[in-house]
């Protein structure tokens, strides 16, 4: 089990960020996510595994600077 933006979400062995985002509406708006304290950006979504019991935050990043 993991948490995504504070809500419980099922987890399976081998789940990548890309897999997780399939369950999220308008997932194209998320180019950056945070797993616990670590930021991961879209180029790494496919190869980054989501660990069990992690807290995932979808970052709607549109600004900066």
């Amino acid at each position: 089990m993991i948490k995504v933006n504070g809500e419980k979400h099922s987890w399976y062995e081998g789940m990548t960020i890309k897999d997780l985002l399939k369950d999220v509406n308008n997932s194209h708006l998320y180019a950056v996510i945070r797993i616990n304290e670590k930021h991961i950006s879209r180029p790494y979504f496919e190869k980054t595994l989501v660990p069990d019991n992690s807290e995932v935050f979808l970052i709607p990043m549109i600004a900066g600077g």
Binding site: N5, G6, A31, V32, H39, I40, S41, R42, P43, Y44, F57, I59, P60, M61, G64, G65
Partner: peptide
């Protein structure tokens, strides 16, 4: 706290994000 955590890390989150892109 759920998004950029600027109250903890300011704008430093941009460093690795910019690097990734």
């Amino acid at each position: 706290p759920k998004q950029n955590q600027m109250a903890q890390i300011g704008t430093t989150h941009l460093v690795t994000i910019m690097n990734d892109f």
